[in-house]
Design a protein around this nucleic acid. Structure first.
Lengths: 207, 207, 207, 207
DNA sequence: TATGAATGAGAATTCATTCAT
DNA sequence: GATGAATGAATTCTCATTCAT
């Protein structure tokens, strides 16, 4: 990288490069965790100079925000395609658990937004989030055969519980063997997988 | 702070001094926000040397953890005293909103724990949290006249929603006037106060 | 240790307690290395309050100095008892290697003295060191059957080389497996055992 | 330092800047002693931001290591140029005494290495040290007209004595006037200048 | 004598972001 | 457009020593 990388002139090329950066970020998070994501490391991984990063993303937090929005759209797209009325809670849980980065990003969303995102990208992200929520709500209405307003209300509660449950997924990094017996449950891995389904069941009235 | 603070030799005196430190921390958070909480600033405010702080609190994160546990105990204690069967959602929301620092601390809980708390104080805190949850659940059973197991299940969902809703309370610091119309709702202050009650109503079946 | 430990009134008792403290220090160094020696840890290990330590030792560095002097006296005492004319280099090396803490303390001697020792204890230590050096020199004269002045000169060179070689014994803590081949020798453990004997041989003319 | 320093983009410019930093460090040591070397102070003196320092030196200890290697190379370069067979001991002593920082850095070498140097720079330094030692040994062979192996053995002993004697040069900071008569010798300044030549003479057999 | 609570100086380092080239 | 050198704020926590009790 001692020369100047080829320039991305066309709109397509720019979009492509942004994708490459997002992808590098995903890899970095997987490999090193969130703390491993430094702009330096990201630049290296994306084969790009540090300064170049800022041509495609205005801040680290905006990057995370973009990553989250994409993950959320993935979740809902798959939900639209795969969900069926019975087994909704299990499906939803699995969907959400299986989509890489969705949970940890959702858990950090508030802190991220709070931190350092410029207005414009924040608004853009919010709009995409709202649109996606609506798609979810619509699908839910169809599945449950309830009126849209009802589905929307249910969605809100569900997303709230999901946001809460996502916090449980933040890896505590403790070795279970060293835990006192009475606390082992509280620190169990896959807390989310255990805690979320009952909530969904309760919220959807599928008891 | 050019003198030596009175020495806390008895157990009582020590407890008192720790309280003073926690109290100074609360003041600091109110005045300057979470980022304003510096060990230096805290020492100054608590009229104590920096090193002394560490005799009472092993790290900044442990401090936040202690602060949260106390806030949670306050909430539940008041819940036990004040809650009545009708108007549960409103009461709960108010309780939780009115208890200083409860919401923002709860929203940051996972991140804090993740960060830098030694095992021992973490376990102690977890135990207090568990015990307090149980007290809540018991009171809920009484209020709703449901069996303990049912109350416990309801508590779990409620706390999950609460944890999710708490995220909404993190101040975004945006001036509402500058927001696009279609997003004004999403950034409203008191998001929590608007978003949580419907969830509680739904979860408790009080529709 | 919540009460007041029994007081060491008599001279004997004081000496005994000082010995206990030195002994605790040796244990601490063995177990945790030099960095593990904090006055707090030492107090705990010696079953004494932190303040009490300072009744027996004026500073941490003075403690190390005392430890060194004792180790050196041990070395020379054993040298007087065990050394014989042939195999001097090997014997000396072994003696010095086998006496616990002698080498690492010697290696740190200059830095320690430089740091923080009051005049009086420093002078006392120096006198003991000089006296011990003389004993060594005398023994050397007998062994080699050379005049005292010659033995003294030899001693000086020997101690100089010893001091230099002692530096080599400071544990580098590197894993030999990860070392480049061309540097493996430079970082070998027991550097001292390999580097010192040839020097002694050369200095004593035992080739 | 309210502006941005000129950017060193070429390899040469970078090398130059590193030299400037090392030079500033030397100045700092002269003026304030080793304890005066603070990364902050160094940055200020080098007219560079603190962070910039770390672009050129990975840690304070690496800085000292670099300083030592350069000093050693200076010594040996001058030795190659100036040494002649007679008066070797005096010449060597003077060379070593006169090269700024060589002695105090050599005395601290082990401690520095032990402390906090990353593998890569450590290995690089070691290699330079080894190469320089060889140059010394070669010159010695020429001067003394002895075979290389013999010269190498002599070098080892010499460096050992040198390392030991270097410890004597660490400034004790005591006022000679306040010293007891019987210890005045032990604390004399220029201890090194008095203690090293006899050793060299003995080792080289120039008696 | 013994205790241990209180002190407080002190410094290294990271990393997001900028902007000269 | 791309680069990567430079920036510099910002904060934690340790631990030897003291001295009130």
């Amino acid at each position: 990288m001692d020369g100047t990388a080829k320039r991305a002139r066309s709109v397509d090329q720019k979009a492509e490069r942004q994708k490459a950066i997002l992808s590098a970020a995903r890899g970095l998070i997987s490999d090193l965790g969130f703390d491993g994501v430094t702009m330096s490391a990201l630049a290296k991984r994306a084969q790009v100079a540090k300064g170049t990063l800022y041509l495609y993303v205005r801040s680290k937090e905006e990057l995370f925000l973009l990553l989250f929005v994409e993950a959320m759209e993935d979740v809902v797209t798959r939900f639209e395609a795969e969900a069926c009325a019975d087994q909704l809670p299990e499906q939803l849980t699995r969907l959400v658990s299986d989509t890489p980065l969705f949970l940890p990003l959702y858990a950090r969303l508030a802190a991220v937004i709070e931190a350092n995102v410029a207005d414009e990208p924040l608004f853009a992200a919010k709009r995409r989030i709202l649109a996606t929520s609506n798609r979810f709500s619509n699908k839910l209405a169809t599945l449950l055969e309830v009126p849209p307003a009802r589905a929307e209300a249910l969605s809100l509660v569900l997303f709230q519980a999901l946001l809460g449950a996502a916090q449980l997924d933040l890896p505590s990094g403790r070795d279970p063997a060293t835990l006192p017996a009475d606390l082992r449950d509280s620190f169990a891995v896959h807390q989310f997988d255990r805690a979320f389904p009952p909530s969904v069941r309760h919220i959807l009235g599928v008891d």
